[in-house]
Design a protein around this nucleic acid. Structure first.
Lengths: 274, 274
DNA sequence: TCGAAAAATGACAAATCGTCATTTTGCGAC
DNA sequence: GTCGCAAAATGACGATTTGTCATTTTTCGA
């Protein structure tokens, strides 16, 4: 019995320390990611070297490689962190009380806020999309990101389906709800790619990329005759309402309370690599 | 006098050989670019190493570095080659005899053909856009690409301006012709980014990205009330006419004469890096 | 055939990713 | 306290890759 008790105790104790260890490791991983993210933003993808990261984190390279199988795996981990944030933003946006058309606008507002709060995310998202790394990366991480993206999409698709069900929009030309999502996704992704580009949009005659994107999506949805058409209602007022009701804190953070601000500050640009 | 003649002769001769040299060098540069492009497509950006390229071209690395200041400079040169092709496609498209709305559709058809004929271009375009290399690259090359892109855009902007002039479309919300271009550009770029992604679009519920893109632009322009609305005319027939009248050879090359083909083969995917 | 200028070459330096033998640390047992 | 083992951390090292530059080779007119 005594032995058994001891044994149980030891087991418990051992498990307790093991749990603590896990927490510590998790915490360290987040610390590494924080520093890596900063580096990625400031110095670009090639500028974020594993040696430099090891120096900055004050851990050795070997330790970092215990967390991530390779550099791309690390970038993927960064993407997951922010992608799950985006998922949360989208979910909150979709709860907006209003017509389906307004709920779609809410998702657009969510994306806009998301990009402003996490400007680095888009860059790493592009890197992940561009680099072929399916076979080098931790499978779990791969699936996690995939699932996250899928949930983001299905949040939007669900709104489309609801709209179809309520008769707010009719899908023509054999379009599926997913095709509609694809259209919105394209515009958003393309706009952010161009906005993050080295050549300022202003040199291409575009004053405010975000505003242009908002109007492009507006016209796209109007073209589908998704009612109410945004000519019929006060578009700007809806955006303001969404920001106030769903994202008060984030709006405060980004716009400092100037909810109705029209000409928005442009996104930060990457520092040139050294 | 004699000396003068000799001197003139020598100068002429020297210039002639110099011209020949220049031609040879130019020719070699194109040969290098051809091989580099193949390598870029087959092995991806990291897989196209300068050593391998030197081997494949049967020149030394030093010689290659006499043509290009760095790897990015070479990729930029590749981009320029195809971008000027795109410019030509756009210019031809804009000559389509028809309503302004149809001429915009023609540009869309041009882009679609372009991406199919030069599938590698988009990848290098993204690389150029993602990597900060403004300061490493030959300034001339930088400007050349920039000018090329600008001409592509202004071809489209010109159609928009004509449309406004003819009353085919009214720009609301303070939109400029360039803002309209931006909208179209976003959709196109986003769609191709997503289509070139590792995750097949079919897993996201999108059967045919090109088709979805076509409809997205259609709805976008319909939403702007750019007449004639494409519900009012036979959209598919216009596309076929454009392919037949403006791009017969290219259509043949891509679709093998099946001009009206609806479900198009998906774009080739990058071979995994070695 | 000669010689100078131009061009080609590839060894080399520097940087980077990822590995792994070696060292250090953590922790329970006595 | 200290012993010993397992787990974790370390950084030197191998393999690549980019870009340079002293040296060799070629070109071409005299």
């Amino acid at each position: 019995m005594t032995i058994c008790h001891f044994s149980t105790y030891r087991l418990k104790n051992s498990m307790a320390t093991s749990e603590r260890k896990k927490r510590q490791i998790k915490q360290r991983e987040e610390m590494i990611l924080d520093i890596a993210r900063k580096m990625l933003v400031e110095r670009g993808y090639p500028g974020m070297s594993m040696d430099r990261l090891a120096d900055a984190t004050e851990y050795s390279k070997g330790t970092i490689y215990q967390h991530f199988t390779c550099k791309e795996d690390l970038v993927l981990a960064l993407s997951i962190q922010t992608m799950s944030k985006r998922e949360e933003f989208f979910r909150r946006a979709s709860t907006f009380q209003g017509r389906t058309r307004e709920r779609i606008v809410a998702v657009g507002v969510a994306e806009d806020l998301f990009v402003r709060i996490y400007p680095y995310h888009f860059r790493s998202e592009q890197i992940v999309r561009l680099t072929s790394l399916r076979d080098k990366v931790t499978p779990l991480r791969n699936e996690t990101l995939d699932a996250c993206e899928r949930r983001c999409l299905s949040t939007v698709a669900e709104i489309v389906r609801t709209a179809v069900g309520q008769g707010d929009v009719v899908l023509r030309d054999g379009m599926t709800p997913e095709d509609v999502c694809f259209g919105l996704w394209c515009m958003t992704m393309g706009a952010h790619t161009l906005m993050a580009s080295e050549i300022p949009l202003s040199e291409r005659g575009v004053r405010d990329g975000s505003k242009s994107l908002r109007f492009a999506t507006k016209y796209f949805l109007d073209g589908m005759e998704w009612t109410p058409l945004m000519n019929d209602v006060d578009f700007g007022a809806t955006v303001v309402r969404i920001r106030e009701e769903i994202f008060p804190a984030e709006t405060q953070q980004v716009f400092g309370g100037r909810v109705a601000e029209k000409s928005l500050p442009s996104l930060p640009r990457q520092v040139s690599s050294s």
